[in-house]
């Protein structure tokens, strides 16, 4: 036991806490991984709608992006988990409600990321694809989209980092993710400073690891690209 400023640190809680947090880490990664995949797909769909020649689709996608970007995750979680559940009579589990909230919010941001990335691909590429006899769909999927993804990767990674950090909010409705586990440990061991510091380092480590992986990925993706 070390004493600083009259405070007796309870370092002994760290060891058992790490074991528990390990389980929480699994749930956090599951929540954020699932939300990432879903919002990547939904975001792409919304971005394509925003660029579609059909006016109605464009309008709907615009409204989607504006509405879902306007709110904070916590409001979504409360609204979906308590509000919608009460009004429609569906009982979402905390994990489902959390993934839904993370997905609608982040898909709106990702739609914007995709849209600007698609806009950043030189129009000459499309013309070249057309002149080589590629159809609209094949031209998009084999020429335009792969380049747009490379441009979008850094922003998408930032978005993923936000998803991981925001996923802590879902603990408020009762998931056993990193932060949920920490809260339980705090009420058990009564060592808030040690445990909240510990969980902060867990999040920090995930974020740094994701950024490091992203740097490697970016380098690989940009090998063939003249930008």
């Amino acid at each position: 036991m070390t004493t600083v400023l009259g405070y007796a640190f309870q370092w002994s809680v760290i060891r058992p806490a790490i074991g528990e947090l390990w389980h929480g880490l699994g749930i956090t990664l599951e929540l954020s991984g699932l939300s990432l995949v879903l919002s990547l797909a939904l975001g792409l769909f919304v971005a394509l709608c925003r660029l579609s020649p059909v006016r109605l689709l464009r309008g709907a996608a615009y409204v989607y992006v504006q509405v879902f970007r306007a709110l904070s995750l916590y409001i979504y979680v409360l609204w979906i988990y308590f509000g919608i559940a009460g009004a429609v009579g569906i009982n979402f589990s905390p994990v489902t409600a959390g993934v839904l909230a993370l997905t609608v919010l982040n898909s709106a941001y990702m739609a914007e990321i995709y849209r600007s990335a698609l806009g950043a691909v030189d129009p000459g590429q499309r013309e070249a694809a057309t002149s080589l006899g590629f159809g609209r769909i094949r031209g998009f999927s084999t020429v335009i989209f792969p380049q747009a993804v490379r441009i979008a990767v850094p922003s998408l990674v930032n978005q993923f980092v936000d998803i991981v950090k925001d996923s802590s909010i879902i603990a408020i409705i009762g998931t056993a993710d990193l932060f949920g586990v920490t809260n339980r440990l705090v009420s058990y061991y009564r060592a808030p400073f040690e445990l909240y510091t510990l969980v902060a380092f867990f999040y920090l480590t995930i974020v740094l690891a994701v950024s490091a992986l992203a740097a490697v990925l970016e380098k690989r993706l940009r090998r063939h690209l003249l930008l």
Binding site: F179, V186, F193, Y196, T197, V207
Partner: peptide, 24 residues
């Protein structure tokens, strides 16, 4: 780098419950 790696919610609890007991 450190601050950007930690969620706001964790910070709220850290300051309100953690630092409070640390500093008294």
């Amino acid at each position: 780098q450190l601050i950007r790696g930690v969620p706001l919610l964790v910070f709220l609890y850290w300051v309100y419950f953690g630092v409070a007991v640390l500093l008294g």
